[in-house]
Amino acid sequence: MSVPWLDWLPLLGEGTLITIKIALLSIAVALCLSALAGLGSTSPIIIIRIASRTYIELFRACSLLVLLFWVYFALPFVGVELSKLWAGVLAIGLNIGAYGAEIVRSAIFAVPKGQYEASLALNLTPTERTWKIIIPQAVARMIPPMSNLLIELLKSTSLVYFITLSDLTYEAMIIRNNYYSYTPYIFALLLGIYFVLSSSISITMRILERKFTAWR
């Protein structure tokens, strides 16, 4: 009994592309929100600080799958109707963004105080201080924890299976309906594909880290 790997390839290929698409879009949303809320929680303006903290605490306390259900099934009742793709991207982006904001915030606070003082002593403007002194050093610190977070993001894209978006997991379940007796092989292959995708994220991040720490 040989395993019909080749018959599965087209569907799994399509699913992989959808998973990558969701992952990339969610990464974009999550990184924007992380930067906004992370910088916002260090802002001297109290309203921005409170708004950022509320976002971070609220979405870190919320279960991603429940949020996804709420965005996709409940929001249409108040007139907001999103496609499956955008519901998934929004829910994942909002959730991961809240965790990312904490990484951004702690990386900014981890820049030694002497750096602020030196830039004051050199009479740099606040904009120069933020963009030329603080951010470049903070970004280098952000990359290792961000790498872990992006792997969490990739893993959480599998949850869109629940709203029947045809991602990798969903396609594998369809294949399983047709090739029931091969179930263990299908799931083993599925785990393997996710492992390869996660590994490519961590390799990319390691290359980025080397680039951003070249000045050290």
């Binding site: 893993k155 599998s158 949850l159 599925l190 492992f195």
Partner: peptide
């Protein structure tokens, strides 16, 4: 390996 793959797929498995 466990950390790199989704809980959902592990549960299915």
């Amino acid at each position: 390996f466990i950390r790199s793959t989704p809980l959902l797929v592990q549960l299915f498995f």
